[in-house]
Design a protein around this nucleic acid. Structure first.
Length: 566
RNA sequence: UGCCCCGUGGUGUAAUUGGCAACACAAGGGAUUUUGGUUCCUUUAUUCUAGGUUCGAGUCCUAGCGGGGUAGCCA
């Protein structure tokens, strides 16, 4: 139950893509006897982000739901921006999200086939070599209201085109001097049909094909045919490719090859987040963040390092749905998804982020005892642990107020609180330093109230707070992460500013926290709840054995903050 | 300015292709609670506008308004 991502067949609502897919299989002759085939087609020019996760969940989810297959295909047609590092990171991230591709392919696998098809187009009078440079081509293309004009090279003979194309491929012409273009319609209202470029000359080293090629196919010339070769039945992509669909269809039809159906959906936008690879790259290269996997980044690697679980990301993608409306999802939805999952699986511990020392004046000096704590109230199998208790310990600074409002249920002068899993204490005295800062609380405890020790211990007080015994405490680095951007729509920068000006200057705060001993020996990557505080993950990069560094994944919901704000 | 797409509670998605507008999150209220967490109950609130077709329109048609995409030898 409550694992819709794992049991997509049980989700009640079909999204519009599923509706279309079912309709296609029910009605299209070409699909009879076939099962669905999808693909996730990233360009390896950056790291995957949460928006890609939506696409991954969609494509792999469709294949799972309908018993078909999903390939991973790298759209590696522009070697000047692509690299093996990105290929590797993408495979890591897709696997981490919990998906296994059926076929692993590269558009570059199809370079020769694509070239053969280009020759076919030329032979059939559907393509020509054009000598216009980039600027001229723009002029000839026309504008939104004016049709374009035919290139002066549009009517070259088949023989000449074949010869020129071959010589382009052999490297006889400098970069930018010639292109191969489809011969469609320079007056088409859709720009993509105004004789689009198929091949450009680029003397770039390709991460897979090396220096075999010096002409590279454009996206439009590569994508649909790659889909066709792989027998993709449904080619799912984002809305900005919608205007390309007529071209996609034109290529399949003109080449007389298997014709996948392209269906577009709205890409994910998240509040307080930027989602373009270009901008994410800029954050990385300008050192605004520590790397693609900085825990503040919306990249898969960043979310992973932050402590997000694959399940929570998949559930998030399920929650937000899919449509053709271009909206923005509140980051709260993502944060809720990880809270929801972590609540079920994360063991609880006690840690003090901003300590005040407390001394129990009536607790014998030198005495110590061990209390039993529940590891996870949501998971009976998580067991118990021993919690050391003694005369001095730390509590959270914000759990004490000298002059509290009436609804404040925590410690106050003369007031009582329950120490979680321990005793009820009363604050008798407040000690301050010269500046007026509270340095220590002198309290007394009620020995009858030890948790679980019988009827007398059942006495109720309004508040329960967490604590860490001083003698056995460890000090560790904790990084408190907040949103990377302080603006809901970071891209909407004021006049003369950029999205970088919307960066939250307090998106990370490193502090030293006091933790209970059990927390000190957990392996890297472990996710825990600091009781009453939030979920934290032991950083896999910066932690050392016995010296964990904690990343705050997300805070707990805080209804006190709402009350206090009033 | 041409072309294409999209407008359903605050947000995101549904609504058996014309038949009682629903779900989740958020917000408000309450219960439970040795985490002001979790859980449970509950309240508020929705079809962009104007026409048209129809017994009946969120759904179909027309116009308007609003939003997005599009003039790379990027993907």
């Amino acid at each position: 139950m409550n694992q819709p991502a794992e049991n997509p067949n049980e989700s009640e609502h079909k999204n519009f893509i599923e509706v279309e897919v079912e309709r296609d299989f029910a009605s299209k002759a070409a699909l009879q006897g076939r099962s669905i085939q999808t693909r996730f087609p990233p360009e390896p020019n950056g790291y995957l982000h949460i928006g890609h996760a939506k696409s991954i969940c969609l494509n792999f989810g469709l294949a799972q739901r309908y018993g078909g297959k999903c390939n991973l295909r790298f759209d590696d047609t522009n070697p000047s921006k692509e690299s093996q590092e990105y290929v590797d990171s993408i495979m890591t991230d897709v696997r981490w999200l919990g998906f296994q591709w059926d076929g692993l392919y590269y558009a570059s696998d199809y370079f020769q086939q694509l070239y053969d098809w280009a020759e076919q187009l030329v032979r059939e009078g559907h393509a020509y070599v054009c000598d216009l440079n980039a600027e001229q081509m723009r002029e000839y293309r026309g504008t939104l209201t004016e049709p374009g004009r035919n290139s002066p090279f549009r009517d070259r003979s088949v023989e000449e085109n074949l010869d020129l194309l071959e010589r382009m491929r052999r490297g006889e012409f400098p970069e930018g001097t010639r292109t191969l273009r489809a011969k469609i319609d320079m007056a088409a209202p859709n720009f993509n049909l105004r004789d689009p470029v198929l091949y450009r000359i680029m003397f770039s080293h390709h991460h897979r094909t090396g220096d075999d090629w010096c002409i590279y196919p454009m996206y439009d010339w590569a994508h649909g045919q790659s889909d066709s070769i792989e027998g993709i039945t449904h080619s799912i992509c984002t809305l900005e490719f919608e205007n390309h669909r007529p071209l996609y269809d034109w290529f399949c039809k003109t080449l007389r090859i298997f014709h996948p159906r392209q269906i577009e959906f709205a890409r994910l936008n998240l509040s307080y987040t930027v989602m373009s690879k270009r901008k994410l790259l800029q954050l990385v290269t300008e050192g605004q963040v520590s790397g693609w996997d900085d825990p503040r980044m919306p990249t898969i690697s960043g979310l992973r390092r932050r402590g997000y679980t694959p399940e929570s990301i998949r559930n998030f993608c399920e929650t937000i749905g899919v449509a053709r409306f271009n909206g923005t999802i509140d980051v709260l939805v993502l944060e809720n998804a990880v809270r929801d999952h972590l609540n079920k699986i994360a063991n609880r511990y006690m840690a003090i982020l901003d300590p005040i020392k407390v001394t129990l004046t009536n607790y014998p000096e030198g005495q110590a005892e061990e209390l039993e704590a529940v590891n996870n109230p949501e998971d009976p199998n998580a067991g118990h642990r021993a919690l050391p208790f003694s005369r001095t310990f730390y509590i959270e600074r914000e759990d004490f107020m000298e002059n509290p409002p009436s609804k404040f249920f925590r410690l106050k002068p003369g007031g009582e609180v329950r120490l979680r899993y321990a005793y009820i204490i009363k604050c008798d005295e407040v000690r301050k330093d010269a500046s007026g800062k509270i340095v220590e609380l002198k309290c007394s405890y009620d020995p009858e109230t030890r948790s679980g020790s019988g009827a007398a211990s059942e006495r109720k007080v309004k508040g329960t707070i967490h604590w860490v015994s001083a003698s056995t405490a460890h000090c560790v680095e904790v990084r408190l992460y907040d949103r990377l951007f302080q603006s809901e729509s970071p891209e909407e920068a004021a006049e003369g500013k950029t999205f970088l000006d919307n960066i939250n200057p307090n998106s990370v705060t490193a502090i030293t926290a006091v933790i209970e001993p059990a927390l000190a020996s957990l392996p890297s990557g472990t996710r825990v709840q600091f009781e009453r505080n939030g979920y934290f993950c032991i950083d896999e990069k910066d932690s050392k054995p016995g010296e964990p560094v904690f990343n705050r994944i997300v805070t707990l919901r805080d209804s006190w903050a709402k009350i206090a704000a009033k």
